[in-house]
Measured scan of single mutants.
Amino acid sequence: ELREAFRLYDKEGNGYISTDVMREILAELDETLSSEDLDAMIDEIDADGSGTVDFEEFMGVMT
């Protein structure tokens, strides 16, 4: 189920989504998050600083 959700956002099928897209997902899930909260969450999610979120990083957030 998580893989299907990931595929919805990984429109190009390249195995990752951008941190911008991940930020939008988080904002949709919790509309009360401030910009600073979102920045901090993205920094934590994208631990390797690649600017992308792969499936493993995505799973870590969603579980």
Rank of each mutant, 00 (worst) to 15 (best):
D48N: 13
E1W: 13
F55W: 11
D54F: 13
G13R: 04
D10R: 00
S35W: 08
E24D: 11
G15H: 03
E36G: 09
F55N: 01
V21M: 11
S18G: 07
G49W: 03
L8N: 14
D39I: 06
T19P: 03
Y16D: 01
G49R: 12
L33K: 05
A47H: 13
D10H: 01
E44F: 14
E28V: 11
E57G: 15
L8Q: 15
G49Y: 05
G49Q: 08
L2K: 02
E24N: 11
D43W: 12
A47D: 06
V53E: 00
F55G: 01
R23P: 00
M41Y: 08
S35G: 11
D46P: 01
S18A: 07
I45S: 03
E56S: 10
E36V: 09
G15C: 05
L2N: 05
D43K: 14
S50K: 13
E56W: 13
V61C: 10
E4I: 04
D54I: 07
K11Y: 09
E24G: 10
L26G: 00
A40E: 07
D37G: 05
T19G: 04
E4G: 03
L8M: 11
M22I: 09
V53L: 11
D30N: 13
R7D: 15
E44A: 14
T63S: 10
L33Q: 03
K11G: 05
V53Q: 01
I42M: 10
I42L: 11
I42T: 02
L2Y: 11
D20E: 14
L33W: 11
D43C: 12
A5E: 08
Y9A: 09
D46M: 03
D39T: 07
E57N: 13
L8V: 14
A5V: 15
T19K: 07
V53W: 04
A40I: 08
F58M: 03
T63K: 09
S50P: 02
M62H: 04
I42V: 06
I25V: 08
G13Y: 03
L33H: 03
G49S: 08
E57P: 02
I25K: 02
D30M: 12
T32W: 08
L8K: 15
G51H: 08
E56D: 11
L38C: 02
R3L: 14
I25R: 00
M59C: 10
S35D: 14
G13Q: 07
G51S: 04
D10Q: 01
A5S: 09
A47V: 12
M59R: 10
Y16R: 05
E4H: 05
D30L: 11
E28D: 11
I45M: 13
R7Y: 11
G60R: 15
S34I: 04
R7F: 13
A5Y: 14
E28S: 14
E1H: 13
T52S: 08
L38R: 02
R7I: 15
G13F: 05
M59P: 01
E31Y: 13
E56R: 09
E31H: 15
M62I: 08
E31M: 13
M41S: 01
T32A: 08
F58S: 00
Y9F: 09
S35I: 10
N14Q: 08
L38K: 02
L2G: 04
R3V: 13
S34M: 07
E36H: 09
T19L: 12
D48Y: 06
Y9Q: 05
T63V: 11
L8P: 06
K11E: 08
D46A: 05
E36Y: 09
E4A: 06
S18Q: 05
D39K: 08
I17T: 00
N14L: 13
D37L: 09
I42Q: 01
D10L: 06
N14V: 11
E28K: 15
S50G: 05
G15E: 03
F55C: 04
A5F: 15
D54A: 10
S50C: 08
G13L: 06
V53I: 13
I42E: 00
I45V: 09
N14I: 10
S18R: 06
A27P: 01
D10F: 08
T19E: 02
L26D: 00
M22N: 00
K11S: 10
D10G: 02
G60W: 15
E24Q: 14
E31F: 10
V53G: 01
I42Y: 01
D30C: 13
R3G: 09
M22G: 00
Y9V: 05
A27H: 12
M59T: 07
L8C: 15
M41G: 01
S34V: 05
L33F: 06
E56L: 11
M62Y: 07
E24R: 12
V61E: 03
